[in-house]
Write a protein that binds this DNA or RNA. Structure first.
Length: 406
RNA sequence: GGGCUGAUACUCAAGCGGUCAACGAGGGCAGACUGUAAAUCUGCUGGCUAACGCCUACGAAGGUUCGAACCCUUCUCAGCCCA
């Protein structure tokens, strides 16, 4: 980072910044390119909703973009939507949406810097800044909020297809939900940013911010704001990867978990993940494709992807270890090292162990699992839940649930 | 404020007096097949019981009935329309 970047490199990096994983740039890619080359230290940010303590690889794509700006010497800000999380992004279609309390928001956000720090740098010569948007949203007065809202029409709000579809479905739309884009938009104004980055699903909210900035509200000078939308990472079902979906890969997953989750992805996702998450070049992607058409087992390519991901978010050493552990456990069917332990006591049954460990939530569920052959004691299927266990026994539920008696 | 319609399990969504712990889809779990793949197929998916069965549930509270998710009343919440 301390080495001065050569102009040619700068050019390549800038080109990468403008193209890789970018869905669209507002107003135009060209205009942003000009601003980037102007020598001005642009201020760039992306917002994150603290609705869960985990950041996932969808977030990583945004952070990655921020890092590219950071490497080029621009000012980078990570904004935590501490205030907006309490309103609730109306992207969700259900009317009754649980609104987070200040405490929950705080607890969730506490883990973010450490996770984001794997990608962007919060120290060093050009450190990223962390901001919580309640700092400027909480003090807004009603008069100011009214002024902000006068920049939009109800028709403009209704243009959002998510609102349209809700009207069609006869679902309620809360008045406060119209305020959400306003609040998020005011983030841009308060921070006086030049560029905002977000997924394509955030286009409306981000453009609301652009409108406010161009209008020059509440004493802030009018100025242009660029908006970069990034492609969304999809899961197997082709749905956007988000906190509400299962199977998402979190930045704070252990190397083993992360490796396993990647291996469970459909083969179709290998190339998209390689491109979006690991940033492979076109040439490299073509190479991967030719290996597949040559008949190479996709499993190998997926192993490489999994190792790449673990190496990126943990370390190359962890990637190697995770790959070995994965093979040992699932290919060679060995027992892993870190199995949860249940303390032995007299008259301890298999059912007790399942319930106490949380592998099953009720006795009824235990019975069903046994009927289906899902419970194994020392590799053999269990038929009686009340079988007593002894120290050293190994209980398995399905493929992943393991318990050791000590 | 008035009229009409609706509220069903994790989500969506049937059911409209007994055969309803509640069709179906998604999700989840388990099994088969495999590359721990994915896709596909099968089973399960309120609790208690070895089981017969029992209990708790269909927005809330009452009521009618031998019997109610289904009928009636009130309430709460939402949608549409009128003001």
């Amino acid at each position: 980072m301390s080495n001065p970047v050569l102009p040619t490199n700068q050019k390549i990096l800038t080109e990468h910044l403008l193209r890789h994983n970018v869905a669209q740039i507002y107003p135009t890619t060209h205009a942003l390119g000009v601003a980037l080359a102007s020598g001005r230290k642009l201020r760039v940010y992306a917002g994150f909703d603290p609705t869960s303590p985990h950041l996932h690889i969808g977030h990583a794509l945004l952070l990655e973009k921020l890092r590219q700006f950071q490497e080029l010497g621009f000012e980078v800000i990570m904004v935590i939507g501490s205030f907006t999380a309490m309103i609730g992004d109306p992207t969700d279609k259900t009317a009754t949406r649980s609104v987070l309390t200040a405490e929950q928001v705080k607890a969730n956000a506490a883990t973010y810097p450490a996770q984001a720090g794997k990608i962007i740098a919060f120290d060093g010569p050009n450190p990223a800044r962390l901001e919580f948007n309640d700092r400027w949203l909480s003090p807004l007065t009603l008069a100011e909020i009214i002024t902000l809202s006068s920049n939009f029409t109800v028709q403009q709000m209704l243009e959002r297809d998510m609102f349209e579809s809700r009207i069609e479905a006869g679902k309620p739309i809360g008045l406060h939900e119209f305020l959400y884009p306003l609040m998020q938009g005011f983030d841009s104004v308060a921070l006086d940013v030049d560029v905002e980055i977000g997924g394509t699903d955030q286009t409306f909210n981000m453009l609301a911010g652009r409108t406010l900035m161009k209008a020059g509200v509440l004493g802030h000078p009018a100025k242009e704001k660029f908006v970069i939308t990034t492609s969304l990472l999809t899961n197997d079902a082709g749905k956007k990867m988000s906190k509400s979906e299962g199977g998402m890969i979190c930045l704070d997953d252990s190397p083993e978990e992360m490796f396993g989750k990647v291996m469970a992805l459909s083969d179709d996702l290998i190339l998209p993940y390689q491109e979006l998450v690991l940033g492979l070049s076109m040439a490299q992607l073509v190479d991967l494709k030719s290996r597949l058409t040559a008949g190479e087992n996709p499993r190998q390519l997926k192993v490489e992807l999994a190792q790449g991901l673990v190496a990126k978010f943990h370390s190359p050493g962890d990637a190697k270890t995770a790959a070995l552990a994965f093979d040992a456990r699932f290919r060679d069917h060995q027992i892993p090292a870190n199995v949860p332990i249940i303390a032995f006591r007299p008259a301890l049954t298999i059912q007790d162990c399942l319930l106490e460990s949380g592998l099953a939530s009720s006795k009824t569920q235990c019975r069903q699992l046994v009927v289906q052959g899902g419970i194994k004691l020392n590799q053999t299927a269990v038929t009686d839940l009340l079988t007593l266990v002894s120290p050293g026994d190994l209980i398995a539920k399905g493929k992943l649930g393991l318990l050791k008696i000590m």
